[in-house]
Design a protein around this nucleic acid. Structure first.
Length: 237
DNA sequence: AAAGTATTCAACCGCCTTCGG
DNA sequence: GCCGAAGGCGGTTGAATACTT
């Protein structure tokens, strides 16, 4: 039957985005949202396909994106999450607030992969086997995405550190994929514990709103307001 | 200083999944 | 239940930049 191209090839611009295009896209999304990516470029007057707009927004323009180098803690978290989840960058990104899947993927391929000893090279089968399970998990709760989507207003300053203890207990080798599936679930539990722990300790220290200290850096957040980091969204059900 | 090589990262491509008619 | 459109994801590419010789 043939697959329709993602966008009309004629007349649509490709390649790096200009500041002007960025400005147009940001203004349009801030005003109208992005309920329909395919229609968005036309409405906004951009000569881009919807996919390109979505990618630009998701990976670069979205306000809660944290730019700059990855902290040691973040890198450790990525390594451990990758060990657990495989190449499921979006799932990893969902656990690292402010970081995008593309960014994580890049940093993995450019830095982190090289650190692994030969016998710990990733086994991509993990990701395939876990995919269904993860989808079920995601359906049960939007907890992961909530983590990233609820920390608006913290961008730029939120040099928040993810404790390496989040996921550091998976030191088993990856030769047994079935074990990995189980371990993955266990590590999700660890993940949950981590966030609950962070939040509960924060609550005791800072009441409901204030500065969360996780690791070396402070993390500002508010509880309850729409669109901000909230303990209810992080409890991971 | 110039040329060659390596590295980084934004962006694209194509497949898969989801959703609505 | 089927089909097509749209969104989302991971793999890959290639231009820009950094580094080495």
């Amino acid at each position: 039957m043939g697959r329709a191209p993602c966008c009309e090839k004629m007349g649509l611009k490709k390649g790096p985005w200009t500041p002007e295009e960025d400005r147009i896209l940001i203004n349009h999304i801030n005003t109208f949202g992005h309920s329909n990516w395919r229609a968005l470029p036309k409405q906004a007057g951009l000569l881009r396909c919807g996919k390109s707009c979505r990618l630009r927004w998701a990976n670069y323009l979205k306000p809660d994106i944290k730019r700059g180098n990855f902290t040691k803690e973040e890198e450790d978290a990525i390594i451990n999450l990758h060990h657990t989840l495989g190449n499921r960058w979006s799932a990893i990104a969902a656990r690292l607030p402010g970081r995008t899947d593309n960014e994580i993927k890049n940093v993995w391929h450019t830095h982190l992969k090289k650190r692994l000893p030969q016998n710990q090279q990733p086994n991509n089968e993990i990701s395939k086997q876990n995919k269904k399970q993860e989808q079920n998990d995601d359906q049960k709760s939007q907890c992961s995405s909530d983590i990233s989507s609820h920390n608006n207003n913290n961008n730029n300053n939120n040099n928040n550190s993810i404790s390496s203890s989040v996921v550091t207990t998976n030191n088993h080798d990856n030769s047994n994929n079935n074990d990995d599936v189980d371990s993955a679930e266990n590590s999700f539990a660890l993940d949950d514990d981590f966030w609950s722990e962070v939040l509960s300790s924060n609550k005791s220290n800072n009441e409901t709103n204030g500065v969360m200290d996780i690791g070396a850096d402070d993390y500002e957040f508010q509880v309850g307001d729409e669109g901000v980091f909230s303990s209810s969204s992080l409890s991971l059900c």
